[in-house]
Amino acid sequence: MSQAVIDIHRILKLLPHRYPFLLVDRVIELDPGKTIKALKNVTMNEPFFQGHFPDFPVMPGVLIIEALAQTAALLTFSEEHDPEDVYYFAGIDGARFKRIVLPGDQLIMHATFERGKAGIYKFQVKATVQDELAAEASITCAVRKKSA
């Protein structure tokens, strides 16, 4: 596996997401077309912590899954792609949440490419905190043109 780091500046070029919805801070490992490992530093100033939950802030599971989908998109877009392409979340299977994610945690996200055909891609994804499984799922994503 090659060690390739994609910093926030490149992530901003590859993904359309912006604050507060960009949920990947850095790619720390990449084997193009096969696997990716990225991180999200979870901080207390995340806007979702104001309401989830004020007395015991927990990162919402749906946002963990979204962070994993963004990681999978970076794996898809790590090689050349048309800037008119947009990555859409198309499906999720077998999602399991095993550990809560708290402010101060570093969420490590892994995505492994399974298959792709006609702009539809399938990945196995998992998120860990301190090598402890936080969430896992099988996700399907679709790449379409912005104008479509």
Rank of each mutant, 00 (worst) to 15 (best):
M1E: 11
Q3F: 15
Q3D: 15
I6Q: 05
H9Y: 12
R10N: 11
I11P: 04
L12N: 12
L12R: 13
K13P: 09
K13Q: 13
L14S: 08
L14K: 11
P16W: 12
H17W: 14
R18C: 02
F21A: 04
F21C: 07
F21T: 06
F21W: 13
L22A: 03
L22Q: 06
D25C: 01
R26D: 01
V27H: 05
E29H: 08
E29N: 12
D31S: 13
P32T: 01
G33D: 01
K34N: 08
T35P: 07
I36S: 10
K37H: 06
A38R: 04
A38I: 02
L39G: 11
K40P: 08
K40Q: 07
T43C: 11
T43F: 10
M44C: 14
P47D: 09
P47N: 09
Q50I: 04
H52M: 04
H52A: 09
H52Q: 05
F53P: 13
F53M: 12
P54C: 10
P54A: 10
P54K: 12
D55W: 10
F56Q: 15
F56T: 13
V58I: 06
M59N: 05
P60T: 00
P60G: 05
L63I: 00
L63Y: 00
L63F: 00
E66Q: 01
L68F: 01
A69D: 02
Q70E: 00
A72S: 12
L75Y: 02
T76V: 14
F77K: 09
S78R: 08
S78Q: 12
E79C: 11
E80Y: 06
E80A: 13
D82S: 08
E84D: 06
D85P: 08
V86F: 07
V86G: 11
Y87I: 13
Y87K: 15
F89R: 01
G91N: 01
G91E: 00
I92P: 00
I92C: 01
D93R: 11
D93L: 05
D93C: 05
D93S: 08
G94R: 03
G94E: 04
A95C: 02
R96C: 15
K98S: 15
K98T: 12
Q106N: 09
M109E: 07
M109L: 14
H110V: 07
A111K: 03
A111M: 04
F113G: 06
F113A: 07
E114K: 15
E114Y: 09
R115P: 06
R115H: 07
R115E: 04
A118K: 07
G119I: 06
Y121P: 09
K122Y: 05
V125T: 02
V125M: 03
V125K: 01
V125G: 06
K126I: 07
A127W: 00
V129S: 02
V129D: 01
V129T: 03
D131G: 03
E132L: 15
E132P: 15
L133C: 14
L133K: 14
A134V: 02
A135D: 00
A135C: 06
S138L: 14
I139V: 11
T140K: 14
A142K: 10
V143N: 13
V143A: 15
V143Y: 07
R144E: 10
S147W: 07
S147L: 10
A148R: 15
A148T: 12
